[in-house]
């Protein structure tokens, strides 16, 4: 049995210790916003915040997630910057297939929370762990700059 705190609520799950957080979120807590893309922390589609740090939930054993505050895309609108990211993403038609965008939104929210006026280099360093096969990178960059320039 493991108890994890997700989006401000405690959840107790009876799963093997090595079951990755991603699958606990998706299967046990029915929070399917975080996506499976590679299972090896290579693509970033599963990104959640663990104590506000972007973390690849597909490689984090549930046993390691205990005692931490986990935030998923489903609750990122509880943060002002998360809301701004979601709005800018919509305004600029960032998503295409959208599958990677939960992870992109989580990564971008963490970046803008940490750094309210990120340079292109800062964006590259924060966002290059998130693959987008549809190639929405240019719009993601534009949206991050737009938020920083106009709203922060």
């Amino acid at each position: 049995m493991f108890t994890i705190r997700v989006n401000g609520e405690d959840h107790t799950v009876d799963v093997p210790a090595d079951k990755p957080l991603l699958w606990v979120l998706r299967e046990d807590l029915k929070l399917t916003g975080s996506k499976y893309g590679c299972g090896q922390a290579l693509c970033g589609a599963c990104t959640v915040h663990v104590d506000d740090q972007p973390t690849r939930s597909c490689v984090m054993p549930i046993s390691a997630a205990e005692g931490h505050n986990i935030t998923t895309v489903e609750a990122i609108d509880q943060q002002q910057i998360g809301r701004l990211v979601q709005q800018a993403w919509q305004e600029l038609n960032v998503p295409q297939c959208g599958y990677c965008q939960s992870g992109q939104v989580m990564a971008a929210t963490a970046l803008l929370t940490e750094n309210r006026s990120p340079s292109d280099r800062d964006i590259d360093e924060a966002m290059s762990g998130n693959i987008c096969r549809c190639g929405t990178y240019a719009r993601i960059r534009k949206a991050i700059h737009k938020i920083a320039d106009e709203q922060l």
């Binding site: 490689v59 984090m60 360093e125």
Partner: peptide
């Protein structure tokens, strides 16, 4: 290292792409 992983100020990665974003306390996957 792929993903443009950086050293960062504390040798543990860029501020929002920390080593611990992916690397656990033991091998996984």
């Amino acid at each position: 290292h792929d993903q443009l992983v950086m050293r960062g100020e504390d040798n543990h990665g860029a501020p929002t792409l920390q080593c611990s974003a992916c690397h656990q306390e033991q091998n996984v996957a």
